[in-house]
Design a protein around this nucleic acid. Structure first.
Lengths: 327, 327
DNA sequence: GTTTTTTAAGTAAACGATTACTAAGCCGTC
DNA sequence: GACGGCTTAGTAATCGTTTACTTAAAAAAC
């Protein structure tokens, strides 16, 4: 919106090529005095690079785009922290775009916005992409990766090992003596939930325990889903422990249990999945299977930086049990 | 990275001007058949607009940039929701940029990244800008506005009426019979805190109450600040009620009070400032002065859309008392 | 039947940078 | 003193789009 390299060139009595070289630090063939002069004038004139022009001519960009949903899930922040830290190390900028909440049209718009900009790579956070958006994404040829969500359609992703998460949670509770263990608040049609449940069942089977389908209560990982699940378990729940699909679900379970006059962990043990800060600020503190969100973010960036065409990149990260007071 | 309007033009046997006009919906002078043909071919070829080129030639952009800090403050989400909703109505895209956490260099980088891109406007969320970054921002000539943070340097902002917040909280507690009221976890050098404290003192004065400076405990709005403030108040606090600088501070206070064997609200009443979802999921639920975050976001966008040079635009939004269980 | 108006589309100049290629000066060498 | 090799800087093409201006043909007006 004002000063261009042309203006600087005129002022400095050099060509725009020289200015360009100096301002983008390709100074190997410039004399010290010219460098100083050009930089001084640039500063004096308040020059600001026009990124649009740069991206147009170089046909490349130093920007990574992160697509997120407006969900109330709070772990995104940790992933984003990881992304930023790693991107910063490599001199990349990060922009974040909202893809709305279950609105395919908004989602499509978001992907379109990004693909029309020549970003270096796209990180899709816990995003379930519609078929249309997927096509658009692939067609764009821009490297992309899904984070914290798996898929079996050959698209690259980095996610926690959800089967292991289910297994760890259940196994721990079984070791603590529980025999009837619920699983609440997860979206049972999602791959995430399926894997978690399969791990949970594996742990049960290992100890010759069975699972009543009623103990698995569907939900969308929200606080209300936790509350509702607890209502379903009732005031005198058959289960003695519940695994929560997310921290918010865990809190919902716990609060509703409180309403029912049930004590956590005495009357009902809770293990929650995610392990965000929320676990630490509620009372009692929630035992969790804590995911490596930060690391997922870091790995996502590294994947994009070292991107080369390959089919079906998949990476599963570790989760760890953190025992607190709710179990 | 591939198909351009040139390719479409060749395929369709028309000029690139025609293609450009059709694809940007300036179709008043095109025949229906040509329009159909061009659009069909564009789709067939998987054409994607190159935004860099568009922005370069039109010297404008449909993008609003939101700058946020990586703070654990969670109200940002509500503001961002408001921004998105309003931006969407006006056909604008929104990108979010992190400015790091108290790292002037990162902050500067973030502002630079944005100003080098010809965005339509900049929304700075609860951001305390360094002098350098400020200069850069102003120099860029891009319309900007601070949200949820006031300043007395003539820069435009939209914020809650912090004096009123302090007043409302204190007045309510006084009406409930409290005479010794603390204020915890706010950053007393900030204008936000100063205004809140001034409102709080005004309420006290109105009822002929005084305030011991010791009751005001400094902090940075975090959970730990709440915990520490409570430790400072001690196991037998002189104050019978505390106003928390943020929801997290409120939770910290409450949990530490619990550790001390104090019951909320019987032994200590708490009113928290912000009123995010957190208030609803803790136990007891926190009474809050709830800010109109969503509205702040909406108003920010409207300001930028209707931007015209004016000095010192300021707008204060309403906050309301929401009585819950902690008071 | 000529002139004017309307419709539909083409020409070409921008936008602001990068960069391959070219060139001018200077120095040293044989 | 002609030649090659550095160093430093300039020339000009290019990226993909928009848009003011021009043009050609057809329709309308006289």
């Amino acid at each position: 919106m004002g000063v261009t390299i042309k203006d600087i060139a005129k002022q400095a009595n050099v060509s725009i090529a020289t200015v360009s070289r100096i301002l983008s630090n390709k100074t190997e063939f410039n004399s010290k005095s010219t460098i100083r002069k050009v930089k001084r004038i640039a500063k004096e004139l308040g020059y600001s690079k026009n990124t649009a022009a740069v991206e147009l001519v170089t046909r490349s960009s130093k920007v990574l785009a992160v697509v997120i949903t407006a969900t109330k899930t709070n772990f995104s922040m940790q992933i984003i922290d990881g992304i930023h830290e790693e991107a910063y190390k490599h001199g990349l900028n990060v922009i974040i775009i909202y893809a709305g909440e279950n609105d395919p049209k908004r989602q499509y718009e978001a992907i379109k916005t990004i693909t029309e900009r020549s970003v270096k790579g796209i990180l899709l956070l816990a995003l379930d992409l519609s078929q249309e958006s997927q096509t658009l994404l692939i067609q764009s040829q821009i490297p992309y990766i899904f984070l914290s969500i798996s898929n079996n359609q050959g698209m690259p992703y980095i996610d926690s090992d959800n089967s292991m998460i289910g297994y760890l949670a259940a196994d721990y509770l079984i070791e603590k003596g529980h025999k009837k263990i619920g699983f609440a608040g997860l979206d049972t049609v999602s791959l995430t939930a399926k894997n978690r449940i399969s791990g949970y069942k594996k742990a049960l089977a290992k100890h010759n325990l069975t699972c009543d389908p009623e103990w698995i209560v569907n939900g969308l990982f929200t606080y209300d889903d936790g509350v509702n699940a607890m209502k379903q378990y009732g005031t005198q729940p058959e289960v003695t422990a519940v695994i929560a699909g997310s921290d918010l679900v865990g809190i919902g379970l716990m609060n509703q249990a409180g309403e029912f006059g049930l004590k956590v962990p005495e009357d009902l043990a809770i293990v929650t999945i995610d392990g965000t800060d929320l676990c630490e600020i509620v009372h009692p503190r929630l035992t969790s299977i804590t995911q490596s969100f930060y690391k997922i973010g870091v790995m996502g960036v590294l994947y994009l930086i070292n991107y080369k065409k390959q089919n079906a990149y998949k990476k599963l990260t570790e989760s760890v049990l953190k025992v607190r007071e709710s179990s």
